[in-house]
Amino acid sequence: MIRAEGIYKSFGDQQVLEDIHINFEAGKTNLIIGRSGAGKTVLLKILVGLYPPTSGKVWYSDVDFTSLDKKSVRDIRMQVGMLFQGTALFDSMTVEENIRFPMDMFTNRSMKEKIDRVNYCLDRVDLSGVLDKYPSQLSGGMQKRVGIARAIVLKPKYLFCDEPNSGLDPKTSMVIDKLIHDITIENNITTIINTHDMNSVMEIGDNIALLHNGRLAWEGNKGEVLTSKNQVLQDFVFASPFLQKVRDLHA
């Protein structure tokens, strides 16, 4: 479990996050949603420790992550996997080397064990025949899968996904969403996904936190999205005329 407790963040005079309190549960896909500029990415980067909060705390289980020394932060991070918006696969490495990289850095496993694990992870994300390819030789969806395979290679307890569906067609997006959701349940991972994709919200939103202008505007789950009277949520979810029509028909 990860808990954000009274998070404030400002860059110069600009207040980006204000008084954020959220619990992210293990074994569930926890979604942070909101419009562009709402502060989703900043919150995600604070949660993984890339940005320090101006004030507030981030708890990993019962460990105060924000007050740890560098070595302890590294120990926690070895339990963290992250899928980046642009995948952040290393261009100069093959798919196999990319996925193997965390094991090369932090484990003493034999090469055979590492390759077995790489193959398992690739198999888990339904990719084959790409071991020797470079990221630039893969499609966007395949790159996302490789990114997921790299993120889970060390069996993380915490998985962060920053806009996992950006740049993907709706069908591939659903496949990626399902993959992340299944992996989360199988391994009891605390998964936090930063998205503004409504398909993701309705498909895999076990827990949903809506940010608006840097504040937590609403919390709930996918079942409550359609019935909530929260105006900010309604404005966000039913932003398009098409979805407004669907809502009206549903009503």
């Binding site: 991070r77 980046f84 642009g86």
Partner: peptide, 10 residues
Amino acid sequence: EHIDAMEIMG
């Protein structure tokens, strides 16, 4: 974000 990715890997 390669550097961020490495940082998060520890």
